[in-house]
Design a protein around this nucleic acid. Structure first.
Lengths: 208, 208, 208, 208
DNA sequence: CATGAATGAGTTTTCATTCAT
DNA sequence: TATGAATGAAAACTCATTCAT
């Protein structure tokens, strides 16, 4: 009969409710212009409740950013599939195919959830922290990790001998730049194409 | 008898003073956390003066961003040199060499002026406007233009046949991603290397 | 679960507190010279509370003016009495007596509450709206209405045949002029006499 | 060759220029919302010039009010004519005719110059001073004065025996009330009629 | 004298955070 | 626990007034 820090189901539901609206409002208004009251109203809770759950506005935002990131990661993970599928993709299309697929998955997600991009930018602007794609990629590591993919490709001779860390970093930077600029430029609709085109060149540069 | 857009020498000096401190404070504190009074104090002028010059906080920020961009552009332009020099570089190192050089120049500038990166991010966050590298590149166009460089390289057979616009976009995105992430990750010192490494791969992907 | 226009007892009390001091300060300082902070301090609430209740300074003022008017109307209404009493007065003293009585009641009220006059003037000056005496009279209409009184007096032959609307307007204008000028001239003490004297002439002009 | 406080012709012209625009702006915006800069701009002088001429904003306003009043008085005076004409009017139409004529003249002026009404109200609101119609009437005194007119009418038997001061006050109050309410109610066009109707009743009340 | 750039005191308004209920 | 009224610190912005040129 533990009365520990267990999480009551209703509590969790409320928390997620709040985060959902938090995401929406922070993305729309920006951190500075967001009134916590609005979020509370949308989530149909008192402002005090929001504060009890998250402590303060900054922590609410950070939780929101984490929440947003998790959703993106979940999408990509699901899209890419489990280890077997990853192995299968590499078998058929090589590391190139896999990396392209990951990029496309990211692009798809952000095209459909531009709010997530806004959140990333707000996070940077307010907290100059945690590089998003790193996060995303870190998630991906659980299923191979970009580093591993690159390392494998070098071993198989698909890629020329390059510094693995540099490649991973560059890959993430390219993804980040394409998504951020592409998404906010008002060309969301062409986001996937933009990322594809960029990766096509980049990945060609890794070929032997 | 109202004066037109005459430019009093002292006025301009004061204006630039304000912008210099503006840049510093906005970069350090972020747009939302900046108190215009602080800027006025640093610039040794009354708050009213700041407002008379720039109208309001947002316009002050935008003027600051423009100011920052111009400085970056000036640096790169100077670094790359005039048309002759550009031609010379292309002759010796190809378009690849030139694009790498531009990237390096950008990286150098932003490593030494990380404030400029902060401003870019703040601008995005507050105004979701004007993609910086595009701007920067647009400047560069006056001395060749990325498009022209790429087009030339395709003609000479240095680059394979690719969609020029896509290349330019990808190039700018990669630069943007590398600079922003590299700079704010606290690895400023390695910024040039990061950009170089990324461009090395990217440009290799354009080779025939 | 937002509350509708429920009326919390304490809330109303606080609201009226604020209005009372609002009236005092606005009357003493004028709209432009009033600092909302002063009102908040006097009412013993935070400035934010004032703003939560009334939105902004203008609305606070308007609410104050309404409040002031209601008090004046309540005074006059009470003084004149119900329909029976009105009928009785007309029976004994004619419409002349009733109109004189209303004028006197107004004068009495404003002599004792010169703040109400100030508020009227401030309202005019700032918002050029809502003619006060009309308002006041409109209230009075509920118990006969000046128009009705005049109409009745014409029917009974007490008044000569005149344009009813013109009479009502002139009556209100005379009252307004006497109260405003009398009150602010520093001759408050003689306000009742001033109104009486003016009405004596005016009403004589209506006799057959 | 006196270099005394003589008033240079140009200086006077400038002063009047300023007052003219002052009147316009104060009437349109109200005292509190008027920016002296606007007046200076319209008058095509530096702000400093305005201040050198009038000292400060309040004095500028007061000078404006005086200016406005003088214009009104000049109009009425001209309309009524000199002493001979006054005597002639009294001979033909009695004091009643003259007082009605004065009222009409006022009404005409204010209908055509509603700004003057605004100024009166602003003056009251900001300075709670100098009752306008008194001023106007005081001017009129130079040509007979309301008091004299009334006194004369009593002597000739045109008016019944009334307290002269009270009549004058009531007359001015009625005028004030009619003009102010009539003018700002948006019924400017009917202002003359409104005043006429009111005076008709009022003056009838003075008849023997 | 004329000017208008510079100033900073003074106000309005917002909103994160608290806490009594 | 949940709430939302109350708070007041914090900032943006204005504009009367001054004074160096």
């Amino acid at each position: 009969m533990k009365k520990t820090t267990e999480l009551a189901p209703k509590t969790i539901a409320k928390r997620n409710d709040i985060l959902r609206f938090s995401l929406e409002v922070f993305a729309r208004e920006g951190f500075g212009n967001t009134d916590v009251q609005i979020i509370a109203d949308l989530a149909n809770v008192g402002k005090g409740t929001v504060y009890r759950h998250f402590g303060n506005k900054e922590q609410l935002f950070l939780a929101t950013a984490k929440f947003s990131l998790e959703q993106a990661a979940a999408y990509v993970t699901k899209k890419i599939g489990g280890e077997e599928q990853v192995a299968s993709v590499i078998g058929q299309h090589g590391a190139t195919g896999l990396l392209r697929m990951i990029g496309t998955a990211c692009a798809e997600y952000y095209r459909r959830h531009p709010q997530a991009v806004e959140i990333m930018i707000q996070e940077r602007a307010q907290f100059r922290e945690s590089v998003f794609p790193t996060h995303l990629m870190h998630r991906e590591e659980t299923r191979g990790g970009i580093d591993d993919i690159v390392a494998g490709a070098i071993k198989t001779g698909e890629f020329r001998k390059v510094n693995i860390a540099e490649v991973t970093t560059a890959y993430a930077d390219l993804l980040y730049g394409s998504v951020v600029n592409g998404c906010l430029e008002g060309t969301k609709s062409k986001l996937v194409k933009r990322v594809d085109a960029a990766l096509e060149i980049f990945l060609a540069g890794l070929k032997k």
